[in-house]
Design a protein around this nucleic acid. Structure first.
Lengths: 241, 241
DNA sequence: CGACAAATTGAGACCAATCAAAGGGCGTGG
DNA sequence: CCACGCCCTTTGATTGGTCTCAATTTGTCG
């Protein structure tokens, strides 16, 4: 079911102009009040929970088109930081007004529900990753997941440019940065990938898939839910909801 | 905002009579079509992703009052099994009709959104647990989390009766059953708890909290989001939404 | 009581963390 | 433009925590 033009206009008015977020800049802070969602227009960001000792758990990386901030709806507070990994742009969406709008327009409410449901599925996949996969499987998973998401945006699925550091990858995969670095070297030695700093070339996608599949045939399905929140910034996607 | 009596009646008609689920019985199966949600009336259940080698990742345990099945809304398929750990009762709720109802009644839509949002926050907390905590912290977290949830239902927060096996606890915490067993023994030796099979007495709640807090002061906040889906089976809670 | 699953405990292996050092990349300022 | 400093990355040596394999005990249900 689509949206009437009047509804689309109301939705359009909600979307604030894109604004720049410099590398290292915050979109949300843990503990901050939830007054907006945000859509990534350009760039890459991470969601992370940080503690005083400087350790962080990265709960997700966000590419262009993804919708951020749904975790905070219940508590009224965000439960984690969202930080730009490179110079990025986001559109903010005032949450209370979106809430009102979703009460009037079922398609909007349905879209939000669907997006949140996908994020739950994705989170379960990551729990599986962290709870029962060994380091090499985790990194293979990470590379394939990124490959698929980059492909969905029309870029090469094999020539990746990683905007995040080894430490951040480790923070996502539950590994230390040295372990991540060693695994990159091992994969390169075995001819699976070519590494030159942040530039990674996936030479043997099939063998990377084997590494993951051997461990968890189910994971492939969960992966497909991964790219939760692809929302066209003009909200054209809502026509499909 | 509450519900008009006509709305409550419509909602009541949606809730199917509670039916028994024997120990080991399924409420949902991974890959099954999403046609219902379910509310736990009595008993305890687990959500788990299983692979052919017999390994499983438990993504959550569910106590009385919790709402199950929201993960499947997006994909149209559930992404994991839900199995009763002891003889239980659940009420099923046909999802398509609930969807229609939520389009008419904003309070219902808001409740679903809030519940899903809490589940996302909880999942992030578990990711933190699995990604950056050591075994003893994980088990302390598990015991405290269960203690809090049991307390919320009016039972003693210190005298726990664990319906799940050591293997299932390990499946949740990313540990092998032997490790879980060893940790129970260690905690008992140190006077933190008393273990007699499935019956566990939490002697030193404070010291258990220290074990978790030392590692991640943030986790306490995430814990509070944990008890996502407490939905009174008569849906009285919706009056608060 | 018997059969089977669950739990405990031990010994040893292995994987990732830790500690440590050196090399690279990038931006800033001279 | 180069030099410096800082962070990121790589690699090595060692430690340590958890898994694995194995045997035994305990508990549960027919």
């Amino acid at each position: 079911m689509g949206l009437a033009s009047g509804q689309l206009r109301r939705l359009g008015e909600l979307i604030m102009p894109a604004h720049r977020v410099p590398r290292g800049g915050y979109v949300f802070r843990a503990g901050g009040d939830t007054n907006t969602l945000a859509v990534v227009r350009r760039g890459t960001l991470k969601s992370a929970v940080l503690d005083e000792q400087g350790r962080e758990q990265v709960v997700g990386f966000h590419l262009t088109g993804e919708l951020l901030g749904l975790d905070g709806i219940a508590a009224g507070k965000y439960c984690r930081d969202v930080v730009a990994l490179e110079d990025s742009e986001v559109c903010r969406i005032p949450y209370p007004e979106l809430q009102k709008l979703s009460n009037d327009i079922p398609a909007v409410a349905n879209y939000i529900q669907t997006t949140m449901s996908r994020e739950i599925s994705r989170a379960y996949g990551v729990m599986l990753l962290l709870g029962s996969m060994r380091a090499e499987m985790r990194l293979a998973f990470f590379l394939l997941d990124l490959s698929r998401r980059v492909l969905a945006r029309g870029y090469s699925p094999t020539r990746l440019s990683l905007p995040m550091t080894r430490k951040e990858i480790g923070g996502y995969l539950g590994l230390k940065l040295e372990s991540v670095s060693r695994l990159f070297s091992t994969f390169q030695r075995d001819g699976l990938i070519e590494v030159r700093g942040k530039a990674v070339n996936l030479v043997e996608l099939g063998r990377l898939q084997e590494i993951v599949q051997d461990a968890h045939p189910q994971l492939g399905k969960l992966l497909e839910n991964g790219d939760a929140s692809v929302l066209n910034a003009q909200c054209a996607a809502l026509n499909l909801a």
